[in-house]
Amino acid sequence: MSDAMLVELEGVRFSRGEKEIFQGVDLRVPRGKITAIMGPSGTGKTTLLKLIGGQLAPDSGSVRIAGQDVHRLPRRELFRLRRRMGMLFQSGALFSDLDVFENVAFPLRVHTDLPEAMVRDVVLMKLEAVGLRGARHLMPAELSGGMLRRVALARAVALDPELILYDEPFVGQDPISMGVLVQLIRKVNQALGLTAIVVSHDIKETLSIADYVYVISDGQVMAHGTPASLDVDRDPRVSQFIHGEPDGPVPFHYPAPDYFSDILAERTGS
């Protein structure tokens, strides 16, 4: 265990029912950097974040954060460790019965004894950083998708965590909010010096902010390296993914019987 690494996964295996999602994933996330985990949809990227956050337990292997084995911690300790992490969910996952201000104030209220005036200051600072100080009285249902994610980001950094996990931060965003989010993630990282893990399949945006990239496919780490090194990677699977080619080693078609005989089967078979 080196101090330079905040998160370390070793030989993580995980299966859901019959389906094996990870077959021994090794992954190291350096402190203070943005590490991207990329891969086609359905490769279990969100599952990987849940394993890191301790919401799911691996079948074997270990996940260590700052030297602590996440899945060996007692429940209480695990919740204590999570105070040092923030997570941005794909849907934002704001509490729908609280307004924007109270959502951002929530971690402060439950984990600190700050006086109300200071809670207010901190919340307004965080909201200002994501440009939504003016939206503090709105309810989550009144926000657009991009705004939801920005509020969620403000909430995730409310306690100034060491580690922040982003689950598909760019999915379903219009170009403007996409740009805003890319800039925010980079800015938050630089300003707070925190460690970030970004799970995404939006290649351009993710490569533009990541310091290091892991590409996951078929339950294993397929490639890893800096964005520049992956860009020139010769492996056809990596190249297909990084350059967004529709067909290649990852086939366009879901496995199916021969097209021609499949079409004819209906007429001859029935």
């Binding site: 849940k50 992490m85 969910f89 794909q90 849907s91 996952a93 439950v110």
Partner: peptide
């Protein structure tokens, strides 16, 4: 619905046990 919209998960990740809260 809280579970479906990941509110329970996000509460866990904030370090608050949804079972208690």
């Amino acid at each position: 619905l809280m579970k479906a919209t990941e509110q329970l998960s996000s509460m866990e990740m904030i370090g608050v046990d949804p079972l208690r809260r």
